[in-house]
């Protein structure tokens, strides 16, 4: 297990390094730079000063080396767009994205897995109905769910139609602020969770059906184990492997989905920040966002691997060797 963890750690470091470097070079080599944000009336001296401030007067490789050496000391440069250190900006945005993603993931799991157990082990009208609804939600990707939910919210006023806090949030006390966020969270979280829940339901149902047809389930029934116990404690446990495998992919999907959802519902997360940074050619902010996203990916795939190992002893042995 220790060797496996060390290998994953090296992979994580490589991923963060490669992705942030690629983002830095891409932004740097793109036509135009951040001085375009100064406007048409900026003097040549001002443009020069700004370029020097963001190390744009150096060559791309020299700038990259400088950024790397600073990043090793946890100094990620500063953002032109926000005129603040990138590290602080990223921390805030990453926390918002993580909150959204975790709530959506937990919600999708709690909704999708039990429904999948039902549809995978039972026939009948209820099961067919769930299957149909699930197929519909599978076909409404986050871009459409978020648009639809914002549309519904703006019509019914059940939820705020966007943002993470109300306009007056800065004046609120800590607990009132938290309640305010909790009111804004359901819409983007639901937009992200619904398609994912449908995916979980379909996968769990398929895996459940395959497991139930195996001899050991029949054997358990023959020994007189009650039907519900067989389904949950015998069949479900054995059917978990493909579900755990999908969690590794779900992290990437959550990050991708959260970009769209954050954009549509104005949630101040990592995706929105990266989009703004890319458009403004804010080099260090782009690199910082990319590094943070890569870190999320690495952590996510590590958790998925550990889940897989917990669910299946065969995987555990393969990882140990």
């Amino acid at each position: 297990m220790a060797r496996f963890l060390v290998r994953r750690l090296f992979f994580a470091i490589f991923l963060v390094f490669a992705v942030s470097s690629a983002a830095l070079f891409l932004t740097r080599l793109a036509p135009g730079d951040v001085t375009a944000q100064l406007g048409a009336f900026a003097s040549a001296a001002e443009v020069e000063r700004t370029r020097a401030q963001f190390d744009l007067d150096r060559g791309p490789v020299a700038q990259w080396a400088l950024w790397m050496s600073r990043a090793a000391r946890f100094d990620f440069g500063s953002s032109f767009l926000y005129n603040r250190p990138v590290g602080a900006l990223i921390r805030g945005a990453a926390a918002n994205t993580a909150t959204l993603a975790v709530v959506a993931l937990v919600g999708a799991t709690l909704l999708g897995i039990p429904l999948g157990i039902i549809t995978g082990s039972r026939r009948g009208t209820a099961s067919a109905l769930i299957r149909g609804v699930s197929l519909v939600f599978l076909s409404i990707p986050p871009l459409l769910t978020s648009l639809l939910l914002v549309f519904i919210a703006s019509r019914t006023r059940w939820f705020p139609a966007g943002g993470m806090t109300s306009v007056n949030a800065v004046d609120l006390s800590w607990s009132a602020w938290l309640a305010d966020v909790a009111l804004h969270l359901p819409l983007p979280a639901l937009a992200l969770a619904l398609p994912l829940a449908a995916t979980f339901e379909r996968l769990q149902a398929q895996s459940m059906t395959e497991t139930i047809n195996q001899p050991f389930v029949l054997a358990a029934v023959a020994r007189g184990v009650p039907a519900n116990d067989v389904i949950v404690w015998h069949a479900w446990r054995a059917s978990l492997r493909p579900i755990c495998a999908i969690y590794g992919l779900a992290i990437g999907a959550l990050l991708s989905g959260s970009f769209v959802v954050e954009y549509v519902t104005a949630w101040p997360g990592l995706g929105r920040l990266m989009y703004e940074a890319l458009r403004a050619r804010d080099v260090y902010l782009v690199a910082g966002c990319a590094a943070m996203g890569a870190l999320f990916l690495a952590i996510g795939s590590l958790i998925a691997d550990m889940l897989l190992a917990a669910a299946d002893p065969r995987v555990r042995e393969a990882q140990a060797s």
């Binding site: 076909s139 409404i140 986050p142 398609p195 379909r202 996968l203 398929q206 999907a253 989905g257």
Partner: peptide, 27 residues
């Protein structure tokens, strides 16, 4: 939005018929 939904639904229905997991994770 309705058009995109119908197209994705069409593909999901088709793939389900083929008997493969309808994994539609990347938006």
């Amino acid at each position: 939005a309705a058009a995109i939904f119908l197209l994705v639904l069409a593909v999901n229905l088709t793939v389900q018929g083929v008997g493969r997991a309808p994994v539609q994770l990347e938006p």
